[in-house]
Design a protein around this nucleic acid. Structure first.
Lengths: 259, 259
DNA sequence: TGTAAACAGTTTATTGCATACACAGTATAT
DNA sequence: ATATACTGTGTATGCAATAAACTGTTTACA
């Protein structure tokens, strides 16, 4: 392989592609990057990203903090590896034979949300660039697959995948925030504001908030009516609007072609 | 005012609405919450959220770290106040008289993005619930205003505002990440992946990444062609798709009404 | 007017974090 | 055989949030 081209990859990216060769000399390694990442993910899944510290990972594995730095150059690189490992979804392509593109896109968004929901810490990590780790790029590949048969150019396809990913991310963030609230022993109403709706109804005045006022008063804003699924429905609705938007765009293109 | 209802508001929320009365007895205060928030925002604007520490704020103001805790119960509450202060946009309602709803929504999304771009740290703060601070709710009000004349119920309106806000947030996050990369002295290509496109072209194989492969090879994935505005165009495109989706939904509703 | 309570800002201490660096021991290439 | 490159460890640095005890100040009320 042409190593000159690979060498200037950022350390975390190179690591994620398995391009960093394990040392030949010296004592045998007692740990592995995989185990470290796995442990870090387990901690993050259970106690959140803030519980993931180098010392916590190390002591869980039965080693000292500094030993981890023999495997991973920095904590940021470790976080990148965690993200990539969390992205390891696979959506069987075969099952998509009979699906229309809308259903494929729904599946893609759902899979994205699943990653985020399964690993609530996922969106706590700041993105530092376009996805360049393998599993992350596989997700992009799956997203693009949903546009395969559509009469769109590459820019349009990428934009749509970006749109769907962004949407999934937003959904996931809010869903996780809600779950976090619940896990902290608080009521769902402390998240939706329902618990404070009496106060809000006093604070939100029609003169300052003319358009919000009716929604606060009717309880729609704080989701008073939907105890069971306070936010899920909003997202189904939003996704369908996005898909409608894509459909509309396709129909416009078709119209232009015919002329 | 009915203080019993207000008392159980979370401390940060109560603070943001100005419901926490300044103490009557004791020495006069030398600082103010406003000054503290202002200082924190100034630091965050210039050096990022990670530069904002209680000691940094305090020393900038010429006080000791702990003095801040006389004003703000915790750093988290301070972050909430920072967010709310950053939300202080105002979009003149008068100018909207002749606008169609699409333009109003574009304006709303742009204003949201502006907040995020003006204060890049904004999206680094984890949301812990539905917006309940005054300026934040004013943004919701402005968003809803764009739907005022549309034949939609409250749930639909709220969902659409949520969709637009989510989209703006996603755009803002990516724009900020790019800017952060540039400010760190790195090339735009290190963000878009263009700097590593040679490596990516070796790593992204057509068998593993059938749909992504052509985009990587053509350079669309790493935005090779667009040096000046590598991500802005994607977002204009995505927004128009969302608006198309809303328009499509409105036309469906109209169709149903006529029957 | 005097005094106790409620406050202001400070000092000190605790705990936890990432990570730089020097170390002793170990496997390997030559 | 021996230099080299590595292993995991121990120690130290500097920064973070914030708890607790402190001194001095203002106000409410007797």
């Amino acid at each position: 392989m042409d190593n000159e081209k690979m060498d200037n990859l950022p350390p975390g990216i190179a690591l994620s592609w398995g391009l960093v060769e394990p040392p030949k000399r010296g004592p045998k390694r007692e740990m592995s990057i995989e185990k470290i990442v796995e442990t870090a993910i387990a901690i993050a899944d259970q106690e959140g990203l803030s519980a993931v510290s180098m010392s916590r990972i190390a002591s869980t594995l039965g080693f000292t903090t500094m030993s981890l730095y023999r495997y991973v150059p920095s904590k940021d690189d470790l976080l990148l590896l965690m993200m990539d490992a969390a992205c390891d979804i696979d959506i069987a392509e075969e099952a998509e034979q009979d699906m229309d593109w809308r259903e494929k896109m729904r599946r893609f968004v759902r899979a994205n949300i699943n990653v985020i929901r399964k690993h609530p810490w996922y969106t706590d990590i700041t993105i530092t660039g376009v996805p360049m780790t393998p599993n992350n790029m596989e997700i992009a590949d799956i997203g693009l697959r949903s546009t395969r048969d559509l009469p769109l150019n590459d820019y349009e396809k990428l934009s749509i995948v970006l749109l769907l990913s962004s949407y999934a991310r937003s959904c996931g963030i809010i869903m996780n925030d809600l779950e976090r609230t619940l896990k902290a022993g608080k009521s769902p109403g402390s998240f939706t504001g329902f618990d404070y709706s009496d106060a809000l109804k006093k604070l939100v005045t029609p003169d300052r908030f003319p358009d919000l006022y009716p929604l606060v008063m009717s309880g729609v804003y704080t989701h008073e009516a939907e105890e069971a699924n306070p936010i899920g429905d909003d997202f189904e609705f939003g996704l369908e609007r996005i898909l409608d938007g894509v459909e509309y765009y396709l129909s416009l293109k078709k119209g232009k072609e015919r002329r």
